[in-house]
Design a protein around this nucleic acid. Structure first.
Lengths: 126, 126
DNA sequence: CTTGACTCCGTACCATGGTACGGTCGTTAT
DNA sequence: ATAACGACCGTACCATGGTACGGAGTCAAG
């Protein structure tokens, strides 16, 4: 049985973050046992789930839904969420790659341009 | 000479966005000519710069600095900002790729797992 | 039996990049 | 000349994912 502080350090998050997740409905708010709330393995599991899913790029609202799924009955929905997330990730990756490529191009031009205007600034219209 | 509305639609942004950029110091606030402020080509150029630099992944604070640079004297600093931005972009790209790869892995496992628990949910600890 | 660490709770605040509202005033078309 | 459409301005609000604060209560060690 853990206090909020132990739970937090077990998952390397702040106490306030746990309280934030509780307000968002991602974690339950246990009964108080003499003034203090106690957390168990289920809470630990859920909190670890949240952090792993976040690392996989899910937003908290999506994680909320994932937490409501049943591992043995909701393959379908989990796959849908995963696919949607993968597509969003890929689009974002493409955007960032494009931004990087054009900046790299400009930076390269800039290296070999020591007189005259700066290509980086010029390309943006300055 | 443009009004704020014309300037906004010329750059496909909202009027409120221009006012927001003004508050942030990215755009000047012109003198009023009989109650209404008028914008010129310089404002148009700056606003277009802002949008292009945003597309290249710069944050507004960085754009603020870029706007202060002189194209013919500040190559050095522009290159620095570009390199920093490129590195940040690359790190973010790697993170997103990792998130995508692990999700893709899970989704693939999930496709070929029609009985038993869902690998996606299981991998997160559900 | 007090001190210090921790918990509880509501509420406010942070950054980021905007978006919306409401009242007043200027401009333009009919 | 009056309606309707902007512009002006301060201020509040939005999403996202937290972080901080202050006053009260609780718990364990010395």
């Amino acid at each position: 049985m853990l206090t909020i502080g132990k739970l937090a350090s077990a998952c390397d998050v702040g106490v306030e973050t746990i309280r934030f997740y509780q307000r968002k409905g991602l974690l339950r708010i246990p009964e108080r046992e003499g003034g203090v709330r106690h957390y168990g393995n289920e809470d630990l599991r859920r909190l670890r789930f949240i952090r792993k899913a976040q690392a996989a790029g899910f937003a908290l609202t999506e994680i909320h839904e994932l937490l409501g799924l049943d591992a043995s009955h909701d393959h379908q929905r989990a796959r849908e969420l995963a696919r949607t997330r993968i597509e969003a990730l890929e689009e974002r990756i493409r955007e960032l790659q494009q931004a990087r490529d054009s900046l790299q191009q400009l930076a390269a031009e800039c290296e070999s341009e020591n007189s005259g205007p700066c290509p980086i600034l010029a390309s943006f219209g300055v």
